[in-house]
Design a binder for these strands. Structure first.
Lengths: 232, 232
DNA sequence: ACTCCATTTATTGTATACAATAACTGAAAA
DNA sequence: TTTTCAGTTATTGTATACAATAAATGGAGT
């Protein structure tokens, strides 16, 4: 990683943007946790990251605090940072809560969504269908994410959005696993189409119902796979 | 605040527990923000807190990162910490979301609540009724909080509980204002009684409905007072 | 008065030094 | 062999020094 030092002994190159080191470190570590490269339960000595990124302990420790607040790390005084280990129940609880939050967003957005946002949703949906036909896992998942995010944004409730994003990133790894099951795809695409229709009709009750079952269906597919990973 | 230094020049007294300085600083600042002693929008220079608490900048800056993650502070690179300013819409959005979360908790707890937890709820309710008759604002509010917390805990969903707590502390000040309106009290006590009954009957639908309207009724009373404070 | 710009001052960001605690090692005792 | 415990090493917690950026100051020119 080409993370320059600000005043360090080696390579006095200027730092890129107006940002700070701890801000750059956060996504670096976060991504490695989400990817599973930093395994759940494993310790992360400060020295290891410091040497790898060529930074001092100060900004790293600040980044640790943020990641601990996101519950991706667990900090214990005098004993350092550990990648938070998630139980199966944690994931199950999170999925249920996210279904609840999406349904609530569905209720709200029926009041607040604009035609622009609906058009944007349609465009995203078309892109997703194309990726579905191409069988492109990763991009399909990304666009799928964007659609759900767009729904949350359309609900026009900033606190809800931030809450959703927090849980979403924390359990990202498992949500991706949910969408890997191929036979689920055609059903998911179909569900999305129904969702779009109910949005256009501003049918709040139906939309809430569809969103809830959409998430629960996806989770049902991944459920046992994840359970095996976390408990078996 | 009797916060001793670990190795500082003055007063070499041992530190109390096995904790760390940044952990002690967090609730100190958090409380001052919630109490309104640190006004929304005001800057908090590191030096001021450092001198007041007799600590160095390192643990303070780590505490700032945690409080920023809780969105009580807003950090801007090279420009320091500002107490996050909340709009009326933020508070309104948060109250709606909390109603949603409590209702969800109500749905879940019908499946998971134990007799012990029900007994505990009754006990808390009795204490609250006593405080209601005594007209004791502060304690009434505290026990009221405890009841709602007990409901969330009974739902047996750790992610939900953590999410609720996060929003709860962030908007604590305004939730307190909601319960200050005296004429609201008798109605609130009555609502709580109905809630307890529906819990005993495991009537999920009724319980969700009651919890939602309970929160919304409380918010309706405080609403205009808060709007005036934040917009007027 | 006002604006502009250089200079100073204050504040934040990072690195490093040192202190405190925990983890490790290995020999002595059971 | 296992346990215990002193001594050592490694790691974390805090303070401080210095660098970089932003804010404040104070003339010179208009």
């Amino acid at each position: 990683m080409g993370m320059n030092t600000r005043q360090g002994n080696a390579s006095k190159g200027q730092r890129s943007g107006g940002g700070t080191l701890y801000e750059e470190v956060i996504p670096w570590i976060r991504d490695r946790i989400i990817e599973g490269e930093l395994a759940p339960g494993s310790r992360i000595p400060e020295r290891v990251i410091c040497e790898k990124l060529q930074i001092s302990r100060t900004p790293l420790r600040e980044a640790f605090k943020v990641l601990a607040a996101e519950r991706l790390l667990t900090l214990t005084p005098n004993r350092g940072a550990v990648v938070t280990r998630l139980s199966f129940k944690d994931v199950d609880d999170a999925m249920n809560l996210m279904a609840c939050l999406e349904a609530f967003a569905g209720k709200l957005l029926c009041q607040s969504i604009t035609q622009n946002e609906i058009d944007n949703l349609h465009e995203l949906h078309q892109r997703m269908v194309v990726l579905y036909n191409e069988g492109n896992h990763l991009e399909y998942f990304k666009v799928n994410q964007k659609i759900h995010l767009a729904l949350l944004e359309a609900a026009d409730n900033e606190v809800l959005l931030q809450t959703y994003l927090g849980i979403s990133t924390r359990f990202k790894r498992f949500r991706y696993a949910g969408n890997r099951a191929k036979p689920r795809w055609d059903r998911a695409v179909n569900e999305h189409e129904q969702i779009l229709i109910s949005i256009e009709n501003r049918d709040s009750d139906l939309l809430q119902c569809l969103l809830k079952s959409h998430l629960q269906n996806g989770w049902a597919v991944a459920r046992e796979m994840i359970r095996e990973e976390l408990e078996g």
